[in-house]
Protein backbone atom coordinates (compact mmCIF):
# COMPACT_ATOMS: atom_id res chain seq x y z
CA UNK A 1 0.00 0.00 0.00
CA UNK A 2 2.83 2.42 0.86
CA UNK A 3 4.45 2.15 -2.57
CA UNK A 4 1.72 4.60 -3.61
CA UNK A 5 3.70 7.29 -1.76
CA UNK A 6 6.47 7.20 -4.34
CA UNK A 7 6.78 10.22 -6.64
CA UNK A 8 9.28 8.51 -8.92
CA UNK A 9 8.88 9.77 -12.49
CA UNK A 10 6.69 12.73 -11.51
CA UNK A 11 7.40 16.34 -12.47
CA UNK A 12 6.58 19.07 -9.96
CA UNK A 13 6.65 22.83 -9.58
CA UNK A 14 6.97 24.30 -6.08
CA UNK A 15 6.58 28.07 -5.86
CA UNK A 16 8.13 29.99 -3.01
CA UNK A 17 10.71 27.22 -2.57
CA UNK A 18 13.70 29.47 -1.94
CA UNK A 19 13.20 29.15 1.80
CA UNK A 20 10.96 27.99 4.59
CA UNK A 21 8.01 25.70 4.02
CA UNK A 22 8.27 25.76 0.21
CA UNK A 23 11.90 24.70 0.39
CA UNK A 24 11.02 21.90 2.82
CA UNK A 25 8.25 20.68 0.50
CA UNK A 26 10.46 20.87 -2.61
CA UNK A 27 13.18 18.82 -0.87
CA UNK A 28 10.64 16.25 0.38
CA UNK A 29 9.12 15.84 -3.10
CA UNK A 30 12.57 15.40 -4.61
CA UNK A 31 13.52 12.87 -1.93
CA UNK A 32 10.36 10.91 -2.81
CA UNK A 33 11.52 10.76 -6.43
CA UNK A 34 9.99 13.77 -8.18
CA UNK A 35 11.87 16.11 -10.51
CA UNK A 36 11.22 19.57 -9.10
CA UNK A 37 11.15 23.07 -10.59
CA UNK A 38 12.02 25.33 -7.65
CA UNK A 39 10.64 28.80 -8.09
CA UNK A 40 10.83 32.11 -6.23
CA UNK A 41 11.76 35.71 -6.96
CA UNK A 42 15.25 35.48 -5.44
CA UNK A 43 17.70 33.55 -7.63
CA UNK A 44 20.30 32.91 -4.89
CA UNK A 45 17.77 31.18 -2.67
CA UNK A 46 16.34 28.82 -5.28
CA UNK A 47 19.88 28.03 -6.46
CA UNK A 48 20.61 26.98 -2.89
CA UNK A 49 17.46 24.78 -2.73
CA UNK A 50 18.45 23.10 -6.00
CA UNK A 51 22.02 22.59 -4.74
CA UNK A 52 20.71 20.90 -1.58
CA UNK A 53 18.38 18.65 -3.60
CA UNK A 54 21.16 17.68 -5.99
CA UNK A 55 23.57 17.04 -3.13
CA UNK A 56 21.01 14.57 -1.77
CA UNK A 57 20.87 12.81 -5.16
CA UNK A 58 17.67 14.46 -6.39
CA UNK A 59 16.71 16.22 -9.63
CA UNK A 60 15.74 19.89 -9.65
CA UNK A 61 16.13 23.16 -11.49
CA UNK A 62 15.77 26.77 -10.41
CA UNK A 63 13.40 29.11 -12.22
CA UNK A 64 12.81 32.72 -11.21
CA UNK A 65 9.17 33.73 -11.18
CA UNK A 66 7.03 36.57 -9.88
CA UNK A 67 3.78 34.69 -9.35
CA UNK A 68 1.69 37.87 -9.44
CA UNK A 69 2.41 38.03 -13.20
CA UNK A 70 0.42 35.40 -15.09
CA UNK A 71 2.76 35.52 -18.10
CA UNK A 72 5.69 34.62 -15.85
CA UNK A 73 3.66 31.83 -14.25
CA UNK A 74 2.75 30.38 -17.65
CA UNK A 75 6.42 30.53 -18.65
CA UNK A 76 7.42 28.75 -15.43
CA UNK A 77 5.03 25.88 -16.17
CA UNK A 78 6.27 25.83 -19.79
CA UNK A 79 9.80 25.45 -18.41
CA UNK A 80 8.75 22.44 -16.34
CA UNK A 81 7.14 20.84 -19.39
CA UNK A 82 10.08 21.53 -21.69
CA UNK A 83 12.61 20.23 -19.16
CA UNK A 84 10.71 17.24 -17.73
CA UNK A 85 8.17 16.61 -20.53
CA UNK A 86 5.10 17.27 -18.36
CA UNK A 87 3.78 18.62 -15.07
CA UNK A 88 2.14 16.23 -12.59
CA UNK A 89 2.27 18.30 -9.41
CA UNK A 90 1.83 22.03 -8.75
CA UNK A 91 2.46 23.27 -5.24
CA UNK A 92 1.31 26.88 -5.16
CA UNK A 93 3.02 27.97 -1.98
CA UNK A 94 4.42 31.44 -2.67
CA UNK A 95 2.73 34.22 -0.74
CA UNK A 96 3.17 36.36 2.30
CA UNK A 97 2.02 39.32 4.29
CA UNK A 98 3.96 41.82 2.22
CA UNK A 99 2.12 44.85 3.50
CA UNK A 100 2.80 46.10 7.02
CA UNK A 101 0.23 48.29 8.69
CA UNK A 102 -2.34 48.26 11.45
CA UNK A 103 -5.21 50.06 9.76
CA UNK A 104 -8.75 50.04 11.07
CA UNK A 105 -11.16 48.16 8.81
CA UNK A 106 -12.79 51.36 7.51
CA UNK A 107 -9.40 52.90 6.74
CA UNK A 108 -7.83 49.90 5.01
CA UNK A 109 -6.26 51.28 1.79
CA UNK A 110 -6.99 50.00 -1.72
CA UNK A 111 -3.37 49.48 -2.60
CA UNK A 112 -2.55 47.36 0.46
CA UNK A 113 -5.62 45.19 -0.11
CA UNK A 114 -4.88 44.70 -3.81
CA UNK A 115 -1.19 43.94 -3.23
CA UNK A 116 -1.94 41.26 -0.64
CA UNK A 117 -4.65 39.70 -2.80
CA UNK A 118 -2.31 39.65 -5.80
CA UNK A 119 0.49 37.97 -3.87
CA UNK A 120 -1.67 35.36 -2.18
CA UNK A 121 -4.85 34.80 -4.18
CA UNK A 122 -4.30 35.86 -7.80
CA UNK A 123 -0.95 34.03 -7.77
CA UNK A 124 -2.71 30.93 -6.53
CA UNK A 125 -5.22 31.15 -9.40
CA UNK A 126 -2.51 31.75 -12.03
CA UNK A 127 -0.44 28.78 -10.85
CA UNK A 128 -3.43 26.44 -10.61
CA UNK A 129 -4.78 27.51 -14.02
CA UNK A 130 -1.45 27.15 -15.80
CA UNK A 131 -0.86 23.68 -14.34
CA UNK A 132 -4.45 22.49 -14.90
CA UNK A 133 -4.37 23.47 -18.58
CA UNK A 134 -1.36 21.23 -19.22
CA UNK A 135 -2.78 18.42 -17.09
CA UNK A 136 -6.13 18.47 -18.92
CA UNK A 137 -4.43 18.61 -22.35
CA UNK A 138 -2.24 15.66 -21.45
CA UNK A 139 -5.22 13.72 -20.07
CA UNK A 140 -3.39 11.83 -17.32
CA UNK A 141 -4.60 13.82 -14.33
CA UNK A 142 -2.50 15.61 -11.77
CA UNK A 143 -2.31 17.15 -8.34
CA UNK A 144 -2.54 20.78 -7.25
CA UNK A 145 -1.69 21.74 -3.67
CA UNK A 146 -2.10 25.18 -2.15
CA UNK A 147 -0.54 26.53 1.02
CA UNK A 148 -3.00 28.69 2.94
CA UNK A 149 -2.85 29.74 6.60
CA UNK A 150 -4.69 29.10 9.84
CA UNK A 151 -5.58 32.80 9.77
CA UNK A 152 -7.95 31.97 6.90
CA UNK A 153 -10.29 30.17 9.30
CA UNK A 154 -10.46 32.77 12.07
CA UNK A 155 -10.94 36.50 11.85
CA UNK A 156 -7.95 38.65 12.72
CA UNK A 157 -6.56 42.13 12.31
CA UNK A 158 -4.19 41.29 9.45
CA UNK A 159 -7.40 41.47 7.40
CA UNK A 160 -6.22 41.34 3.78
CA UNK A 161 -3.92 38.35 4.35
CA UNK A 162 -6.52 36.09 6.03
CA UNK A 163 -9.08 37.31 3.47
CA UNK A 164 -6.82 36.22 0.61
CA UNK A 165 -6.05 32.93 2.37
CA UNK A 166 -9.76 32.28 2.93
CA UNK A 167 -10.27 33.02 -0.76
CA UNK A 168 -7.65 30.39 -1.57
CA UNK A 169 -9.68 27.77 0.28
CA UNK A 170 -12.83 28.65 -1.67
CA UNK A 171 -10.82 28.69 -4.89
CA UNK A 172 -9.48 25.23 -4.02
CA UNK A 173 -12.95 23.77 -3.43
CA UNK A 174 -14.34 25.11 -6.71
CA UNK A 175 -11.23 24.07 -8.63
CA UNK A 176 -11.50 20.58 -7.11
CA UNK A 177 -15.12 20.39 -8.22
CA UNK A 178 -14.34 21.60 -11.75
CA UNK A 179 -11.19 19.49 -12.20
CA UNK A 180 -12.38 16.20 -10.64
CA UNK A 181 -13.75 14.95 -14.00
CA UNK A 182 -10.19 15.31 -15.34
CA UNK A 183 -8.68 13.31 -12.48
CA UNK A 184 -6.95 16.40 -11.12
CA UNK A 185 -7.09 16.63 -7.34
CA UNK A 186 -6.83 19.97 -5.54
CA UNK A 187 -6.18 20.26 -1.80
CA UNK A 188 -4.91 22.84 0.67
CA UNK A 189 -2.35 22.65 3.44
CA UNK A 190 -3.15 25.03 6.30
CA UNK A 191 -0.09 25.67 8.48
CA UNK A 192 -0.43 27.30 11.88
CA UNK A 193 2.59 28.92 13.49
CA UNK A 194 5.51 27.13 11.85
CA UNK A 195 9.18 28.15 12.09
CA UNK A 196 10.69 28.70 8.65
CA UNK A 197 14.17 27.37 9.49
CA UNK A 198 16.35 26.18 12.34
CA UNK A 199 16.91 28.70 15.13
CA UNK A 200 20.42 30.13 15.00
CA UNK A 201 20.75 32.03 18.26
CA UNK A 202 19.67 31.55 21.87
CA UNK A 203 17.54 34.68 21.55
CA UNK A 204 15.74 33.17 18.55
CA UNK A 205 15.19 29.94 20.47
CA UNK A 206 13.81 31.95 23.40
CA UNK A 207 11.37 33.89 21.17
CA UNK A 208 10.13 30.64 19.61
CA UNK A 209 9.74 29.07 23.05
CA UNK A 210 7.61 32.00 24.19
CA UNK A 211 5.41 31.85 21.09
CA UNK A 212 5.11 28.07 21.40
CA UNK A 213 3.76 28.24 24.94
CA UNK A 214 0.41 29.45 23.57
CA UNK A 215 0.02 26.43 21.27
CA UNK A 216 -1.51 23.20 22.68
CA UNK A 217 1.57 21.10 21.83
CA UNK A 218 3.66 23.84 23.50
CA UNK A 219 5.93 24.55 20.54
CA UNK A 220 6.01 26.06 17.07
CA UNK A 221 5.83 23.73 14.12
CA UNK A 222 9.01 23.12 12.15
CA UNK A 223 9.53 23.58 8.41
CA UNK A 224 10.33 19.91 7.74
CA UNK A 225 6.95 18.80 9.11
CA UNK A 226 5.29 20.12 5.93
CA UNK A 227 7.34 17.73 3.77
CA UNK A 228 5.70 14.38 4.54
CA UNK A 229 2.23 15.94 4.23
CA UNK A 230 3.12 17.44 0.84
CA UNK A 231 4.44 14.07 -0.36
CA UNK A 232 1.27 12.35 0.82
CA UNK A 233 -1.03 14.83 -0.90
CA UNK A 234 1.07 14.82 -4.09
CA UNK A 235 1.12 11.04 -4.33
CA UNK A 236 -1.35 8.33 -5.30
CA UNK A 237 -1.61 7.47 -1.60
CA UNK A 238 -4.20 10.25 -1.38
CA UNK A 239 -5.97 9.44 -4.64
CA UNK A 240 -9.47 9.59 -3.05
CA UNK A 241 -8.84 12.95 -1.40
CA UNK A 242 -9.79 16.19 -3.11
CA UNK A 243 -11.35 19.48 -2.09
CA UNK A 244 -9.94 19.17 1.43
CA UNK A 245 -7.92 21.29 3.82
CA UNK A 246 -5.23 19.67 5.97
CA UNK A 247 -4.47 21.65 9.13
CA UNK A 248 -0.98 21.35 10.68
CA UNK A 249 -1.11 23.66 13.67
CA UNK A 250 -0.24 21.92 16.93
CA UNK A 251 -3.89 21.69 17.90
CA UNK A 252 -4.56 25.43 17.97
CA UNK A 253 -7.61 25.64 15.73
CA UNK A 254 -9.30 22.65 17.39
CA UNK A 255 -9.36 24.68 20.60
CA UNK A 256 -8.98 28.41 20.98
CA UNK A 257 -11.87 28.78 23.47
CA UNK A 258 -9.46 30.07 26.11
CA UNK A 259 -5.78 30.15 26.97
CA UNK A 260 -4.05 26.78 26.73
CA UNK A 261 -3.72 26.71 30.51
CA UNK A 262 -7.53 26.91 30.96
CA UNK A 263 -8.55 23.49 32.39
CA UNK A 264 -12.12 23.47 33.82
CA UNK A 265 -13.04 21.14 36.68
CA UNK A 266 -16.58 20.32 37.78
CA UNK A 267 -17.85 17.51 39.98
CA UNK A 268 -21.05 17.09 37.99
CA UNK A 269 -24.49 18.60 37.55
CA UNK A 270 -25.59 20.59 40.62
CA UNK A 271 -29.13 21.80 41.17
Amino acid sequence: MLETLSLSGRAAVVTGSGRGLGKAMAKALAAAGASVVCSARTQDQIDQTVAEIEAAGGVALARRCDVTDSAQVDAMVDACVSEYGKIDIMISNAGGGGVRGNWEFWEYPDEAFETVLATNLKSNFYCSRAAAKYMVDRGEGGVIIHTASGTALRGNRSFAYPTAKGGQISLMKSAATMLAPHNIRVNTIIPGFVAQRAAETDQERQVRHQRGIRIPVRRLGEWWELGPLAVYLASDASSYITGQSFIIDGGGLAGGLGPVEFVPHHEGVQS
Binding site: V194, P216, G227, P228, F246, I248, G251
Partner: peptide
Protein backbone atom coordinates in the same frame (compact mmCIF):
# COMPACT_ATOMS: atom_id res chain seq x y z
CA UNK B 1 5.73 13.58 11.38
CA UNK B 2 2.48 14.50 13.14
CA UNK B 3 3.85 15.87 16.40
CA UNK B 4 2.45 19.25 15.32
CA UNK B 5 -0.79 17.79 13.97
CA UNK B 6 -3.40 17.14 16.63
CA UNK B 7 -7.11 17.66 17.19
CA UNK B 8 -7.88 17.35 13.49
CA UNK B 9 -10.43 15.44 11.47
CA UNK B 10 -9.25 14.13 8.10
Amino acid sequence: AVGFVTGQIF
